[in-house]
């Protein structure tokens, strides 16, 4: 049985035979086998009939002409012509904004390293603040002032996390306002970058339409 099976013709050989792509020697061997093996002969004849059916299959008629109009070719090419610098600039500004915000949050939540510096600059900060109190800073100050020092330790981890980016609780004593020139710099950087990003996104939209 094993010996007989090894002589059976593979589907690939049948397929190549149908296409006339077997070399002379292989072809002789396959054809000799087909004469003696009914199973392989049926496999071959059915495969050949399948190929003939495919060749006879009716052709689908296009429901319309697929010719392009000037409008077809203009629309996508305009979309594609959105300049490369715009994409790069948007990417870079977005990245810068993320970095600045990340650094800001990092400094705000890592009080031990930056704490003393912040405290030492505190008087300066009050001056800046009294000159131009920003809404963000005003929002921060009362929360810190209201929070009493002892219950703060009992605040749950989630609450701490939620508060952390906004309020540098442990950094500054509750009595003194936390903002410093460093925060001011971050604030302006963030506002500036967000503004630039907005303009770039607007440009993207203009190019798209």
């Amino acid at each position: 049985m094993g010996r007989l099976r090894s002589h059976h013709v593979s589907d690939e050989e049948l397929s190549l035979l149908i296409d006339g792509q077997l070399d002379a020697e292989k072809r002789r061997r396959v054809e000799a086998h087909l004469r003696t093996c009914a199973q392989c002969r049926r496999a071959y004849e059915d495969m050949r009939a399948t190929v003939l059916l495919l060749r006879q299959a009716p052709r689908a008629v296009p429901p319309r002409a697929f010719t392009l109009t000037e409008a077809d070719v203009m629309r996508p090419s305009r979309r594609r012509s959105r300049p490369l610098w715009l994409r790069w600039a948007t990417g870079l500004v977005a990245l810068a904004l993320v970095l600045v915000v990340a650094l800001d949050v990092f400094i705000a939540t890592a009080p031990h390293e930056f704490g003393p510096e912040i405290v030492s600059q505190a008087p300066q900060a009050t001056n800046v603040l009294s000159a131009s109190p920003s809404p963000a800073v005003r929002g921060m100050a009362p929360r810190v002032a209201v929070a009493p020092p002892t219950p703060q330790k009992e605040v749950s981890v989630q609450e701490k996390r939620a508060l952390a980016p906004v309020v540098p609780q442990e950094a500054s004593p509750p009595s003194s306002p936390p903002p410093t020139p460093r925060y001011d710099l971050f604030k302006w950087l963030e506002v500036g970058l967000a503004g630039m990003l907005g303009v770039l996104i607007l440009l993207h939209l203009v190019w798209r339409s």
């Binding site: 593979s10 589907d11 690939e12 049948l14 397929s15 190549l16 149908i18 792509q21 496999a43 004849e45 059915d46 495969m47 009939a49 399948t50 190929v51 059916l53 495919l54």
Partner: peptide
């Protein structure tokens, strides 16, 4: 070549099972 032979063989087997009247 190999995909064509496998595709033809599978199609043949499908027709044998579902439309045997079309095959010799």
């Amino acid at each position: 070549k190999s995909r064509l032979s496998r595709g033809r063989a599978r199609l043949r087997d499908y027709l044998r099972a579902h439309h045997p009247e079309l095959l010799p």
